[in-house]
Deep mutational scan, measured.
Amino acid sequence: ELKKVVALYDYMPMNANDLQLRKGDEYFILEESNLPWWRARDKNGQEGYIPSNYVTEAE
């Protein structure tokens, strides 16, 4: 089971490997080892790295 998180803030990608975050949207965490960058997937199936301090665990 993948960990689900909710974006606390918008995040615009800095490079091609990053994933855009939209405040309030849910994302699945694929990999937590790259702290403070986590690999995530959005609801459309896009994958990339996000800043872990921009998300919180979903209820």
Rank of each mutant, 00 (worst) to 15 (best):
residue 58 A to M: 10
residue 24 G to T: 02
residue 55 V to C: 07
residue 31 E to M: 14
residue 51 P to C: 06
residue 5 V to G: 02
residue 58 A to I: 04
residue 23 K to F: 03
residue 25 D to F: 06
residue 36 P to N: 08
residue 2 L to A: 07
residue 55 V to K: 01
residue 51 P to E: 02
residue 53 N to H: 06
residue 32 E to G: 10
residue 48 G to E: 00
residue 15 N to R: 14
residue 12 M to W: 08
residue 34 N to L: 15
residue 26 E to C: 07
residue 15 N to D: 11
residue 9 Y to P: 02
residue 47 E to V: 09
residue 10 D to C: 01
residue 7 A to Y: 00
residue 58 A to P: 13
residue 24 G to P: 01
residue 32 E to S: 11
residue 14 M to E: 14
residue 50 I to Y: 01
residue 7 A to H: 01
residue 46 Q to C: 14
residue 52 S to A: 12
residue 7 A to M: 01
residue 10 D to F: 01
residue 20 Q to M: 08
residue 7 A to R: 00
residue 27 Y to F: 05
residue 21 L to Y: 00
residue 38 W to Y: 15
residue 36 P to Y: 05
residue 12 M to T: 14
residue 59 E to I: 12
residue 1 E to F: 07
residue 5 V to D: 00
residue 3 K to P: 03
residue 26 E to M: 13
residue 22 R to H: 08
residue 25 D to T: 08
residue 22 R to A: 10
residue 11 Y to Q: 03
residue 54 Y to F: 15
residue 40 A to Y: 01
residue 42 D to A: 14
residue 14 M to I: 09
residue 37 W to C: 14
residue 35 L to A: 07
residue 57 E to A: 11
residue 59 E to W: 07
residue 26 E to W: 10
residue 36 P to D: 12
residue 44 N to K: 15
residue 28 F to C: 07
residue 27 Y to C: 03
residue 22 R to I: 11
residue 9 Y to Q: 15
residue 48 G to P: 02
residue 39 R to C: 04
residue 34 N to D: 15
residue 3 K to R: 08
residue 6 V to A: 04
residue 30 L to I: 11
residue 31 E to T: 10
residue 32 E to T: 12
residue 15 N to T: 15
residue 56 T to L: 07
residue 18 D to A: 12
residue 52 S to K: 15
residue 4 K to S: 07
residue 52 S to T: 09
residue 4 K to H: 03
residue 51 P to F: 09
residue 17 N to Q: 15
residue 19 L to S: 01
residue 46 Q to D: 08
residue 33 S to D: 07
residue 45 G to Q: 05
residue 28 F to G: 09
residue 35 L to P: 13
residue 4 K to W: 03
residue 54 Y to I: 04
residue 39 R to P: 04
residue 58 A to E: 15
residue 53 N to C: 05
residue 57 E to R: 08
residue 3 K to L: 07
residue 43 K to C: 10
residue 19 L to P: 02
residue 38 W to H: 11
residue 30 L to C: 04
residue 39 R to I: 14
residue 30 L to T: 10
residue 2 L to E: 06
residue 54 Y to D: 02
residue 9 Y to M: 15
residue 47 E to Y: 03
residue 24 G to A: 03
residue 53 N to V: 13
residue 46 Q to F: 11
residue 9 Y to I: 08
residue 34 N to I: 13
residue 6 V to T: 12
residue 35 L to V: 12
residue 37 W to T: 15
residue 30 L to H: 05
residue 11 Y to K: 14
residue 8 L to D: 05
residue 42 D to C: 06
residue 42 D to H: 03
residue 30 L to F: 10
residue 20 Q to C: 09
residue 55 V to A: 03
residue 37 W to D: 06
residue 33 S to C: 10
residue 35 L to Q: 12
residue 8 L to K: 13
residue 12 M to N: 13
residue 5 V to N: 01
residue 56 T to S: 11
residue 42 D to Y: 00
residue 31 E to P: 05
residue 24 G to S: 04
residue 38 W to N: 07
residue 3 K to H: 04
residue 6 V to E: 05
residue 58 A to Q: 08
residue 45 G to S: 06
residue 7 A to S: 05
residue 28 F to I: 11
residue 40 A to L: 04
residue 38 W to T: 12
residue 29 I to G: 00
residue 44 N to W: 09
residue 38 W to I: 14
residue 28 F to T: 11
residue 57 E to Y: 11
residue 51 P to Y: 10
residue 44 N to H: 09
residue 7 A to N: 00
residue 4 K to R: 08
residue 17 N to L: 11
residue 20 Q to E: 13
residue 21 L to W: 00
residue 30 L to G: 02
residue 24 G to V: 00
residue 19 L to Y: 02
residue 34 N to Y: 06
residue 9 Y to H: 15
